[in-house]
Computed example of a mutant assay.
Amino acid sequence: MTALEQQVSHAIRPFTVSFRKRALDDLRHRLAATRWPSRELVGDRSQGVQLATIRALGQYWATGYDLGRVQSRLNALPQFTTAIDGVSIHFVHVKSKHADALPLIMTHGWPGSIIEMLDSIGPLTDPTAHGGTAGDAFHLVLPSLPGYGFSSEPAEVGWDLVRTARAWAELMNRLGYDRYVAQGGDVGAGVTDAIGRLGPEGLVGIHTNLLVPALNDPSSLPNTTEEERAALAAIKVFQTTGNGYFVEMATRPQTIGYALLDSPAALAAWMIDHDTDAYDKITSAFVDGKPSGGLTRDHILDDITTYWLTGIGASTARSYWEAYGPDAPAAGRPLLPDPRVPVGFSTFPGEIWRTPRSWAEKAYPTLNYFGVAARGGHFAAWEEPELFAEEVRAAFRPLR
């Protein structure tokens, strides 16, 4: 490849979201034509998403929600694309007005997207307007995972967490950042864990709010204290009664993908059936009109609408097959060494399990921050953006 060809292939191009009217009209038509199942035969969510919840969501989506919100929210931000390893990566890049801001690449998960992080942009890039100081500022990079949102779908297998982490290192290099930190939750925690273990040049620290090693091999962690036993019990409950979506996407992503591309109601039900805390809060927002923090009806539908209009039901499911499927190398571990950089971790009370500090210390010998948040759950940046930003600031403050 010549120098000119390399320059063209590495180009960073501005991006604007534009949804066609016929796509919006088709969504409305499909919502109106939804074939609903009969009501569940139990009084809780043990059979899955409850009919009252999904019908309330569908009704608001069809008649009360502004389908132009996603386009407007994203186009108010600086967006770009660049091709890395055969995939067009979409990202939001917001530079702080503070010259000494620390570059931060932050990764979303499933069923999230960069939508779940939008309300944390202000607190992270402009901390003086949100109770922080200029010394807390970040230049923020929010990439869409391959096959998610406005990033293109991989055309070949092999896009596991480690390959994504390498792509993120390349992205930060292209942006000219020679010193940066990384953060992630859910699948994004796996990517962030992997980039910490890879230790690319320029990375000086990571922070996560989901202890990925605990999900991979909980039996390897201490279980002597009451707190540790409670966390193990919560993981067992999740693995036996709450991870149906995980198993299906990790083993048969193409099968579920057909439904997710054909029915917006099916897509919505699949996406909100993630964990009990998040499901209860989503139900409260739609059925009772009582949102939890930033987890409002509009914010929830911004994310689901993004999935529908970009047609990523199957490709996002395949990302679980790549990362956690039968042939996945334990999400990059134990093939990779312990992280080579300082690690920060924050636990939120509504998480699938409450991570004890002892677990974080065992998983990460370089742990240098452990935070216990007062509110929030699995989607912490989405639900409690201000509190989430405080945790991120505190975790990376020693590295400035």
Score class of each variant (00 low, 15 high):
M1K: 10
I12D: 13
I12N: 08
L24T: 13
H29Q: 15
A32E: 14
Q47T: 14
G48F: 11
T53G: 04
T53H: 12
R55L: 05
Y60W: 15
W61I: 07
L74V: 08
N75D: 02
A83H: 14
A83C: 10
I84E: 01
S88N: 14
V92P: 05
H98A: 10
E116Q: 06
D119E: 15
I121F: 01
G122V: 06
P123D: 04
P123E: 08
L124S: 05
T128L: 08
A137C: 04
H139E: 01
S144V: 03
Y148R: 06
E156A: 14
V157D: 13
R163D: 09
R166N: 07
A169P: 09
E170G: 00
M172Y: 02
V181D: 03
G185Q: 06
G190A: 14
T192E: 06
V204N: 00
I206D: 02
H207S: 06
H207P: 10
L210M: 15
D217A: 15
P222T: 12
P222Y: 08
N223S: 15
T224A: 11
T225G: 13
E227C: 04
R229Y: 07
F238P: 00
M249Q: 15
T251Y: 07
A259I: 00
D262W: 06
L267S: 13
W270K: 06
D273L: 10
T276K: 11
D280I: 09
D280V: 13
P291W: 07
R297T: 12
T305K: 02
L309T: 05
L309I: 10
G311H: 05
S315R: 10
S315D: 11
A317C: 11
A328P: 12
G332E: 12
L336F: 10
P337T: 09
D338V: 08
P342L: 05
W353S: 14
R354W: 13
K362Q: 15
P365T: 10
H378N: 12
F379P: 05
L387W: 01
R393I: 08
A394R: 15
A395K: 08
